[in-house]
């Protein structure tokens, strides 16, 4: 299928992009890598009046450590990030999760921020952002704000971004000394969206576990290492997520994955922590 008609603008600066968004609001659609959006356009599931292409904005193409975060510009592709030699040191969880995001060919074009903006509950990057307590930086002609992951994603394919706002960057906290990380997902085929994705961070006597693919957004739980009733904790979590049946998995299957794979992911993260 072919996309419906839309106007196309390619701003030369972030300010120009913000001006277009201010003018058109939710009739505008930002495109960066377009790896989700283009497929939706091709299926005519999206029909913006104007497409705002930010993929060439220099100002959004940088990826740098600022303070205790890796700040990833909105035009930075998943492949750019994976190519960073220091990624496994800087944000280990991203290094573990990124290879599960689509395929090499889509990572070459797809951006980190685009994946966050899309807000698919089973995708890996929103899970990582939530598990690491990262932030999304939003800007509009009205100003700039930062939202925590938990505030940013509000549900299935929906976020707190206002229509005139542009995601300019995502901020992933840098590895804290001694922290251990683990990531696992169950998908029908490699590269498919996760049926269940699990990300664990072990640090300072605490375990944080994030689960994607079940609730309408990544869900995070945290507890101290000492807790002995992990199975009970995971069982409670599995039920809390309110899993549903779909084409590829039953609710029970999803819960059993949390119960079965959860302990392994946690153990893995703890074994990497010191």
């Amino acid at each position: 299928m072919k996309p419906p008609r839309f106007d196309y603008v390619r701003p030369d600066t972030v300010e120009e992009a913000l001006a277009v968004l201010a003018d058109f609001g939710d009739e505008a659609q930002v495109i960066a890598g377009g790896q989700s959006l283009m497929a939706m356009l091709n299926l005519r599931l999206a029909g913006p009046r104007v497409l705002v292409d930010i993929s060439r904005l220099e100002a959004l193409s940088t990826c740098q450590e600022t303070g205790d975060c890796l700040e990833i510009g909105a035009a930075v592709t998943q492949a750019d990030l994976l190519d960073r030699a220091d990624l496994a040191e800087a944000v280990p969880l991203l290094a573990l999760a990124l290879p599960h995001v689509g395929h090499a060919q889509t990572r070459n074009r797809g951006t980190v921020c685009g994946s966050l903006a899309h807000g698919d509950p089973s995708s890996e990057l929103p899970l990582c952002l939530a598990a690491l307590e990262g932030q999304v930086v939003l800007r509009s002609t009205r100003g700039e704000r930062r939202l925590d992951a938990a505030q940013f994603q509000t549900g299935l394919l929906s976020t707190a971004r206002e229509a005139d706002e542009l995601i300019v960057a995502a901020r992933f906290p840098l590895r804290r000394a001694g922290a251990g990380h683990a990531f696992a997902e169950v998908a029908r085929r490699h590269g498919d969206f996760a049926i269940v994705g699990l990300a664990a961070v072990a640090h300072d006597g605490q375990v944080r576990l994030g689960v994607a693919g079940i609730a309408d957004r990544p869900e995070i739980r945290e507890w101290p290492f000492e807790r002995e009733d992990i199975d009970a904790v995971l069982n409670r979590l599995a039920w809390d997520l309110d899993a549903a049946d779909d084409l590829h998995a039953s609710a029970r299957y999803r819960r059993d994955i949390v119960r079965g794979l959860g302990p392994k992911v946690i153990a893995e993260a703890r074994s990497c922590a010191n």
């Binding site: 069982n235 409670r236 039920w239 998995a249 059993d256």
Partner: peptide, 18 residues
């Protein structure tokens, strides 16, 4: 023989209660 189908055959009859 999808994971969904096989899991339904393999899973213990009683699921841990919430």
């Amino acid at each position: 023989m999808t994971p969904k189908r096989l899991h339904a055959l393999m899973a213990a009859r009683d699921e841990p209660a919430p």
